[in-house]
Design a protein around this nucleic acid. Sequence first.
DNA 1: ACCTGAACACCGTTCAAGT
DNA 2: ACCTGAACACCGTTCAAGT
Lengths: 254, 254
Amino acid sequence: MAPERPLPPMLERMWGRERAPRRGPRPRLDLATITAAAIEIADAEGLAGVSMGGVASRVGVAATALYRYVGSKEDLLTSMADAVALDPPEPGGMPWRDYAALWTRAQRDLVLAHPWVLEVTKYAPPLGPRRLLWLDRLLAALAGTGLDDGEKINVASTLTGYALTDAALAHAAGMGFEEHAGAGLEGAADYGELLAEVLDPERYPALSAAVHGGVFRGAEGWADDADFRFGLDLMLDGVEQLIARRTSKGRFGG
Amino acid sequence: MAPERPLPPMLERMWGRERAPRRGPRPRLDLATITAAAIEIADAEGLAGVSMGGVASRVGVAATALYRYVGSKEDLLTSMADAVALDPPEPGGMPWRDYAALWTRAQRDLVLAHPWVLEVTKYAPPLGPRRLLWLDRLLAALAGTGLDDGEKINVASTLTGYALTDAALAHAAGMGFEEHAGAGLEGAADYGELLAEVLDPERYPALSAAVHGGVFRGAEGWADDADFRFGLDLMLDGVEQLIARRTSKGRFGG
DNA sequence: ACCTGAACACCGTTCAAGT
DNA sequence: ACCTGAACACCGTTCAAGT
């Protein structure tokens, strides 16, 4: 009803709703510029390389000037996580299952291209313009399925979670276990070898058997693209079954 | 073959394999004590409250003494993430689906009890004794299903990812959007209200419709226990279908 | 061999002062 | 109104010195 409710300042800026300032010098920056600079640093040096001072000097300003545009470093990270998302693929007339697969894969690829997203994502519900656009498009693709809105939202968050988890695994596997989560694994050989070294077969019978059977000795490693499709199909099968249940009960119109 | 390969020092300590020191004063601490102190702080004040100095003073030692037991703060966080896991439920003779549901729910509850786990989990493959025990028990529960080891591992990581994602969502919903990811949402009312305020129905048609339809006006909120079961069943249905496929092809023995 | 204390380099954030 | 520069409180980590 009330159309002009005051939003939190950070949201105002993320949605480009800053009220034009009356007098004084014009601002030299905006949130988008600052965010883009921070993303460049994170892509090049990882999230640890992102400091307020570093971002500031990249946009040619004193560190403290950033606080005109950003409430805190946390704010900046939130903005980065939204801005790094490209536009979602368009559903067109695609069958829901094809689109959902495409949509999930695109999210996975995004994270693989910007691994620092894994450290930034606090799993907070999306509030930025790009992330919400992604959500909108999946809802649209599920329009003809007979699922209700709540179920659609649940499907979306389940798929997003899967994309994140799988990307994290693939990322970890690609690191060769040298730089692992700070666990001090410099030069450690292979995941499977480490497990074989460390596991007591009496206390870890099933896992030991799997390790000695060679589960972790795959060609490309154990988190390759086939693994991604495996889990994805598994979930989409579940969704499909749910849709079939809904449809057979005759809930078509709404 | 070579039984005494030198593991990274942090792993040695996590697995209690520290070689007994020859001479000099006996150590006053060990990794478990330090880790427990850090966990207590994180539970009470959040992860931001965990500093090397704080942990040190809690165990009665100078900050710099911790570096006898821990290579870095990252090491300590890794140890915390493993140590916080309780023992997994025992499969007994339970049907695989019941156990998988129990196992996933227990992981979700663990994260809800220690929300800082979400910030610490870099999604690195597990290497600690507790996390690997969890993995072992799920593999054991899936023993009779005809899935191969790789598939079982994939099921495990998919379910773990779901537990994390869902816990994060439930945690976020429980926060009432006051302290959200630093997005500056102090005093912001309701998630649905915020979306209604911010979304342009032309650019976000499907999502706008859902919002105005009241998806985010659930009784308990939109990330309650029913939602958890919804997604879980969805995935277990997928697993069940896969198992059915495997079984019907006659791959029983191995 | 373990622990301390001083020291280093760095960080996010504040605030008063300039324009 | 925007930006600067000095300053503050706090970090993780090192290193030489004690016992």
